[in-house]
Amino acid sequence: MSAVLRATGLGKRYGRRWALTDCTVDVPRGRVVGLVGPNGAGKSTFLNLAVGLLTPSSGEIEVLGERPTGRRARRGKVGFVGQDTPTYAALSVADHLRLGAHLNPYWDGALAADRISGLGLDPGQRAGRLSGGQRAQLALTLGIAKRPDLLLLDEPVASLDPLARREFLQDLMEAVAEQELSVVLSSHLVSDVERACDYLVVLVDSRVQVAGDIEELLSTHHRLTGPRRDPAQLPADQHVVAASHTDRQSTLLVRTDRPILDPGWEVSQVDLEDLVLAYLGRSAAEPGSSARPSLEALR
């Protein structure tokens, strides 16, 4: 599986503050990737680096096999929908489509027009008069109609109400299915990712905590409940992601490729939310806890 997006030791510094440090991640082709993390985790910075709006302070990032400012990106093979989905308030919807046609070499005018009429947008309407959801849809149309190989979306639904959120994501899924493009979508809400994505990257404190196919992640993570015991005594192939103890009982979230054989544990499945929260909580509890074991375990 070739990587559509590959970061190696990627870091970005604003003045003295590092917004992203030592980020290493491979995003496979043909997936819809959910980039999840709390606010300020570096999601926007990562995506802005990927699309070439920022230049890395350290490390490297490759998009479609070359640097983000390379020729492919310039030829319009990378689409981007920015945070708050910016559009020109004074320009009409039709003007935006013409803008896309003028600025992109592979612009698909028919696709754009279809989408706009399918959404029920009035082409003569000024973008400034659109609702937040409609504006996001317009920005998404601009991103999709350029026929990119990779589409990056930076919190596209953050400012939308739940209904508009769902419509937007559904719409995105349909476009992905039709066009076979790779997507990276950032969000701080697990439910968005659950609805839209099949691959998960959890970014906390500018580090990748876990990355992998969502189904695979769910099938290799287990919640173990049983009499209290020290997590260090678990078999070597079981990695503890999160542990909580009461006086008599231990609850562990572990990751392992093999079945849990110990009859002392009551084993239950985890859902995506539990899994993400476990990783978010882990990094807070153990600052600097390395992402490496989890990543290695993935390969």
Partner: peptide, 8 residues
């Protein structure tokens, strides 16, 4: 950002 990511 919209324009800079539109192939310009």
């Amino acid at each position: 950002r919209l324009v800079w990511t539109q192939g310009v």
